[in-house]
Design a protein around this nucleic acid. Structure first.
Lengths: 254, 254
DNA sequence: TCAAAAGTGTTCAAAATACACCCATGT
DNA sequence: ACATGGGTGTATTTTGAACACTTTTGA
């Protein structure tokens, strides 16, 4: 017999993604490696997987990622998935590498979890990794979908992740290291106004190296697009540092 | 009524790939951008698509590429596909980028051709691009499968290709330009014994630039791993050039 | 002997590296 | 007054860029 209460229950338990009318491609996913900086160390954004319809949290963390829709391209998929899982929107993402080991999602624990959220948990999935650097001050995390929570974890404290996500993180880190040699990406991770010491710490964190303060400052100030503000730090128990900002328009007119 | 002649016909017309017992993933392919050098210009290896079971040659060329098998990883797929289409085996391939526009294979001409070779010609396919540099002297082309022929085409004379293959070629070229700044890749494309002028021409072809001969020679000879042989060119109508070789072991012990 | 490409050195400017002390602030 | 991190200059070496003439060979 038909009972309106059941319908309501059904609706409640339908997974958010299943409510869209987009067809999902069962074989291709995107994963996002989002880096942040806490003024000391490089961090990466991970999600805590919620176990399907239950309130249980899967204790294994993962990069935010999910299957693509048939009618979106990969860049769009990465933006959408990141937004659905963490609330971050309008993030400029760059493709890093594609991972396609036939067994990359077949570990027992990963399969158990996939069975709780996927129509075809056993289907082979190759995943396209994307990365971005974000200034944590400018964005708020509002996790939803199957992400119970989204958390910043220091890169050097990253635990064993689900799937092949440690490998993906390594690749993204490596990509970042190479890229920062070619482009001044650092400012993406810092507050709008920052000190040269902060910038140096950031480069040292990314490149896992140390630099001479005078040489570093000279090199930064030689570029014309990191410009001094007429402001200084306040309330620090030492000589206050001058603040600088990155000038995008000066950078682009080089 | 059963007639043995029909069976024989059926077997003849089964496409080579369909004779394997590998399951094919309908959504993921690999494409290979193989560069060569003719002592003057950079070339790329293209296939002439044969139109299904007929002897007709599709006049549109393409990069060698095809769907992956479910039980191989992406690197293996690239090697296999390259070998099946061109006869090149044991080629070291590097992944470049993944292309996933939802409409990348839906142009009419491409669809017509896919219908002649694929079980699901309309399925969405994302493709993972791989690239390599090869010394043409060391390899022979023996095209088969749906490649009627495999041909070297000067990069600057590349015509409009099937699918999004012009875009893929551009990306691979760009990858190569960046990579050759970081690693001495040039020797991969040259004969085992080469002159410094050949090497310079190669760098100029890849980077689309020209260099001062003296500065170029100084820079090359400053590296310890491009070593002079006690040999010179013969039969040239000018002062014969010294021959050099790339010493892999010297390079790797840096 | 001529044409064609090989081979060779110097100068200048810019960038990388190494290195040590005084300064401004809050406590 | 002291602890903390901010800020500065010089000397040396290495690298990049610009530039023109002589040499060796085959035809």
């Amino acid at each position: 017999m038909f009972n309106i209460m059941n319908i309501s229950k059904v609706i409640i338990f339908v997974h958010p993604l299943a409510m869209t009318d987009h067809a999902v491609n069962p074989n291709v996913s995107v994963d996002c490696v989002i880096f942040g900086f806490n003024n000391q160390e490089l961090e990466v954004l991970l999600i805590e997987r919620s176990a399907g319809n239950t309130e249980k949290v899967d204790e294994i963390k993962a990069l935010p990622g999910n299957l693509i829709y048939e009618d979106e391209n990969l860049d769009e998929a990465a933006q959408r998935v990141l937004c659905e899982l963490t609330g971050l929107s309008n993030i400029y993402l760059e493709q890093v590498y594609t991972f396609g080991d036939p067994n990359r999602i077949s570990k027992k624990h990963d399969q158990d979890w996939l069975r709780s959220i996927r129509a075809h948990p056993e289907a082979r999935v190759i995943t396209v990794a994307y990365t971005s650097l974000i200034n944590k001050q400018r964005f708020n995390l509002t996790p939803s979908s199957f992400a119970r929570n989204a958390v910043w974890v220091k890169v050097k404290d990253v635990p064993q992740l689900g799937f092949d996500h440690n490998e993906i993180l390594d690749k993204a880190l490596n990509y970042l290291k190479h890229k920062i040699y070619l482009e001044p990406l650092g400012y993406e991770l810092l507050p709008d106004r920052f000190t040269l010491a902060q910038l140096q710490k950031l480069y040292e964190a990314i490149l896992v190296d140390t630099f001479d303060k005078r040489n570093f400052r000279r090199k930064i100030l030689r570029t014309s697009f990191i410009v001094p503000l007429n402001e200084k730090q306040k309330g620090v128990a030492h000589k206050p540092a001058s603040l600088y900002r990155f000038d995008k328009s000066l950078f682009h007119q080089i």
